[in-house]
Design a binder for these strands. Structure first.
Lengths: 237, 237
DNA sequence: TGTACATCAGTGAACGCGCGTTCACTGATGTAC
DNA sequence: TGTACATCAGTGAACGCGCGTTCACTGATGTAC
């Protein structure tokens, strides 16, 4: 992150400034309105100078995407490290961490999980690794609950059919997971269900005054997500 | 929709053209880039002429929002009318209709359920009524399944706590629903869970090639949503 | 039925604004000998 | 240690573009008497 010469250190600092200013503009004006000229203004530099650091507007967007995924995943990891080491609580801890980060950073959340920015395609080589960290963590947390014998399996376990079974086998192999098909399928539902509720909250898609305490509503949603996995939830029993 | 004089009829037709062209621009360039000048160009008219029909860019956005909510809700209603009158299938029919409309109209779906357009706030008087149709329909469909005795209640039913219980009571009263608290809370989870999965699909937030058949994955998701409600799902048993 | 007036759709010019990107340049910092 | 050269950050002007909105206007359509 830092080079050894003064020039390299100055460059690294300027690079960080650009990303920080970009984040701020994202928060105020949204991704579609992110402009290199505005970033240059806030950086106190003429607009063409930014091109010494960033090849184009799209490249700045990519930096912000990677930055966002990384911070979100770090927040999730930190919450897990700080939380109780209870396999029954894993999904709740991950869920709350995602929601809290999203509410604190609505514009960055929108960049990652909202409407795609028109004309911009995130380059896979840079964004896939940070972008998959949260789902991987969620799968590992579910694996722990399963290993602890907390999850009730359906009996008999349903056959999922192709190509889904093959897709799941590939994911399982890539991550070295010990999860049966039925649980992988449910985990994916939990994943989309989690982000669905967070998106509704962050983007204000419940009515404005429909729910007085959305954190409370979210806890009930987590109950239901745990229920999908076959985890017994006190308040559901 | 049509007036009686030729002038009024011409005006109505032009109005429809504006909304149609706006829809097309939405699809190609996204909501943030929607421009009155571009609409005017496609309409074959000078840019200031559009102001005879629409007070501002924001008003055009509102027209498109209302138009989108209405078409989505109409699609859901049509699917229910065409589908089997089986209370056990209601959520599936609604879910599939939402997903199919969203995949066919990704830009309009994004306008309704994606990142809020920066600087634009939808006026409640015009957008709330069409915007709540789908969730109201979903609740009625769940009510039917409940009335048919298809949903297994938790025993004992959990207490939700305030203010959620009060919020739910208000919704129930407004819609004249016969749903107990526990089921209302689950219905809300199904709602956000449904849109979460559709959003992942439409916005391509699963990895590009992670799942070979997303319709199949969505059916498994619907299984899990039915499971939240306490509906016995063949492939889950 | 015919005329005078009011309404309205659309024109064209203008206002002031912001954008991404390129290019030749200046002057400071770093490096090889 | 000192000098010659290469590298690099940042400048300022320019290119061509698009945007929302206002305004005075022309000419066609509609209406009241």
């Amino acid at each position: 992150m830092t080079g050894t010469t003064p020039r390299a250190r100055a460059r690294a600092r300027t690079m960080e400034d650009i990303v920080r200013i970009g984040r701020e503009h994202l928060a105020v004006h949204g991704a579609a309105a992110l402009s290199l000229r505005a970033v240059a203004r806030d950086l106190g530099v003429v607009s063409s100078a930014v091109y010494r650091y960033v090849r184009s507007r799209d490249e700045l967007l990519t930096l912000l995407v990677v930055d966002g995924y990384t911070e979100l995943a770090d927040a999730v990891d930190a919450a897990l490290a700080a939380g109780p080491d209870d396999p029954a609580q894993g999904v709740r801890v991950v869920g709350r961490a995602v929601r809290e980060w999203a509410l604190a950073e609505p514009a960055r959340y929108g960049l990652l999980f909202g409407t795609p920015v028109p004309g911009y395609e995130a380059p896979a080589e840079q964004t896939v690794a940070p972008g998959t960290r949260v789902i991987y963590t969620l799968l590992r947390v579910i694996e722990k609950a399963y290993a602890a014998g907390l999850l009730t399996a359906p009996d008999p376990a349903p056959a999922l059919g192709e190509p889904l079974t093959g897709d799941i086998a590939r994911i399982r192999a890539e991550l070295g997971l010990e999860l049966p098909d039925w649980l992988m399928a449910r985990a994916i539902s939990v994943w989309t269900g989690l982000f669905g509720a967070v998106t509704f909250d962050v983007f204000d898609q419940y009515g404005a005054d429909t729910f007085g305490d959305r954190a409370q509503l979210f806890e009930r949603h987590l109950d239901n997500l745990d229920g999908i996995l076959g985890l017994p939830v006190p308040s559901r029993e």
